[in-house]
Design a protein around this nucleic acid. Sequence first.
DNA 1: CGTTCCCTTGATTAACTTCAACTTGGGTGG
DNA 2: CCACCCAAGTTGAAGTTAATCAAGGGAACG
Lengths: 345, 345
Amino acid sequence: MHSMKTILVIEDHEEIRENLSEILELDGYSVLKAADGKIGVSVAQQELPDLILCDIMMPNLDGYGVLHMLSRNPQTMRIPFIFLTAKAEKIDIRKGMSLGADDYIVKPFDETDLLSAVENRLKKFDLIQDGSQKAKAATKPDNELFPNGYLKNYNKKDLVYHEGETPTHVYQLLSGKLKLTRLSDDGKEMVLDLLKPGDYFGYWSVLQKQTTTESAEALEPSQVMLIPTADFMDVVEHENNIASKFIRLLSNNLLAQQYKIVELAYNSVRKRVASALIQLADKYTDDPSKPFSMAVSRETLAGIAGTSVESAIRMLSEFKADGLVEVDKATITVTQYDKLKNAPY
Amino acid sequence: MHSMKTILVIEDHEEIRENLSEILELDGYSVLKAADGKIGVSVAQQELPDLILCDIMMPNLDGYGVLHMLSRNPQTMRIPFIFLTAKAEKIDIRKGMSLGADDYIVKPFDETDLLSAVENRLKKFDLIQDGSQKAKAATKPDNELFPNGYLKNYNKKDLVYHEGETPTHVYQLLSGKLKLTRLSDDGKEMVLDLLKPGDYFGYWSVLQKQTTTESAEALEPSQVMLIPTADFMDVVEHENNIASKFIRLLSNNLLAQQYKIVELAYNSVRKRVASALIQLADKYTDDPSKPFSMAVSRETLAGIAGTSVESAIRMLSEFKADGLVEVDKATITVTQYDKLKNAPY
DNA sequence: CGTTCCCTTGATTAACTTCAACTTGGGTGG
DNA sequence: CCACCCAAGTTGAAGTTAATCAAGGGAACG
C-alpha cells in the first residue's frame, strides 16, 4: 500500500512506545523509536523519517521543544508532525497547533484513529504524485444512505473527535448526548452546540475541507454512527435530496448560532445561564412544560452560557432561591420553565 | 389579480396616508383610511378589512395600542397587521413583533417593497384556497443561473431587508458593502457579518422558510441582485452543482460564526475591537499587509465587536496611541496589521 | 446661524472574573 | 468498613473591566 514509509515515534513511556510501534509495523510502516525528546531530535535529523509521532510531556526535552527545534532545520521542518497527548491537557492543544503541529492524537488512542491520522497526513504530504485514487463505482443503495457507516460506542467524557484533527468521518448521534466545544485562546471551553439523537455533526469541516475546529465529547454513554468522509462527500454531491437535507441542517445551525452571537454580545450572565438551562431542557425533553431534570456538570453549564464556573453557580443559586429550579447534587430540575425563559433580567 | 381586497391604512400624517392609499389603489386594492389609532380601531371592527397597515407613532392611540386592541377581538385578531415605522426607531421592531405584528415596513418606503409585503401577507392569509400557482415550466438556462433576478441600487443606510420580514428574495451583492445586523432584546445592534461583492445573502431564511432574523444595511452605495425566492429554491433543489455551492457557503459561514461565538464569550473588548478591525481589513482589501483605510462609523465598529460605542472608541484611541492604527475623522487606517492581529491582550 | 449628528472624554457604577479557601461526595485501597 | 483522596461544587472577598451617564466639541446641513 505505502512504499515502506518510515515513522519516528518519540515517547518516554516504554509500554506506549512499543505498543505504538507494533501497531504501525503491523500496518506495514518502518518504525524508528526514541525514548525522549533529545534522542528524538537527533534521530529525526539523521534519518529524516516520513512522519513523526511525538509525546508532549517528556523529560529532558518536551514535545513542544522537539517541534520547535525540528522546525528550525530546513531538512526536518516539513516532516508531518503529530502530537500524542493525554486527555486532560486541554489547553496544550492550541499551543501545539500554533507552533505548527499537523495533528493530534489523544491517549489512550484507538488503533483505527491512529492509523487513519497517520495515513491522512502522509497522503496530504505527498500530494505531488497523488491523483490516482478517486475511482470507485457509483452504486448507491437507497435504503441505507451510507453503506460504509459503522457504529461505535462512547462513554461519558470520551471524545468523538478533537479540535484540530483532520476529519476522518462524518457522524450521526444515535443515542445519548454529546456536546460540541471549542477552546478559547486562554483555554476556556465554550459549548457551541448540544446534540440529541438523530443529529448529524462534524460534516461542516468535511465540507470545508479543513481540520476540525471543535471537539465532540460525550456527556453520557452514547452510540454514534461513523460515516467515512469520502462516502459522505460522494452521497452529498450526487444525491439531490440528501444535499438539500444538509442544506437545511446547515441553515438551521446557522440561525441558531446567530442567536447565540447576539446573546453573548449583549445579555447579562444571568440571562445567559437561564438561556443555557432552557436550551438544555428544550434539547433533551419532549414536553418542556413539565419539570425536567438533567445531570449537567457546572462546567458544562458554564460553557454553554459562556461564563466562569463560579458565576454559573451563583446564578444557579439565585434561580434556586427564586424557586425557578431545584438542585440536588449534580441534578438540576427546571420547575418553572416559563418564568425562567421570560425572566427580564 | 386579487378580488378587490380591502386594506385599512392607519396613519396620522395626511401626506403619507394619501400617498399610501394612492399606491394601493393603483394596484387594485380598495382602501380605507384612518387618521389616528382610535378611528382606526373602530373602522377595523366595523369594516373587517383584509389587511391593516398601521403607523406606530400616533396621537391618541399608538400603533401598539391598536394592535393590542384588535388582537383581543376574535373578529379582528386574525387580520394581517403590518407596522409602518420610521427608520430611526430600531428597538420598536422587536416590541411590535412580539405583540404579534406580521411584518414591518420602514418609512420612507419603496413602492415595490410595500406592494410585495402586502401581497405576501394576503397570500399567506388565504392559504385555504391556495395551491394553484406553482405551475411554471422547468426551463433553466445555464449561463444565467437565475433568469428572473434583477438589479437594484441602494444608498448608504438603506435597508435591503429588515429583521422580521417575510423573505421575498435571495440576494447577491454585486458592488459596494453591506452589513448584516441583528438587534438584541434591549435594542443594541450586533453585526453578524460583513459582505463583499460576490457574496450571496439572505438565503438561509428562505431555506428555513421563516421570517428573516437579521437586517441587511448598505454601508455605502451598493448594487444588489434580487432573486425571487421561488426561483432560488427551484434552482437549489434541482441543480446539483448549485446546491453544493450553497452547502459550501453555508458551512463556511457556520465556521466563521463559531469563531465569533468563542471570541464574544471569552475575549476582552480590546481583543474584540482589534479583531473587528482585522475583519474589516480582511474583507475589504486584497493585500492586508499594506496599510488599509476604511470609512466605518463607530457604531458599526462597536456592532462588529459587540460592545458599546464608547468602549469601541476608547480601544480605538488606545490602538492609535500604540501606533497600530491612524484615525482621521471617520477614516480608520490600519498601519500595523500584524501587530494588531497578534496583540496578546 | 442654529440644529443635529457623530465623535470624544471623564466620572461613576455595576457586573463579572479571579483568587483562595473550604465543603461535599464518590470511589479506592488498606 | 473506615480512612483517605481527588474531583466537583460552593462561597466570600478582592480586583478588574466595561457599561452607563453626562457633558462638550466639531463638522455638516438646511
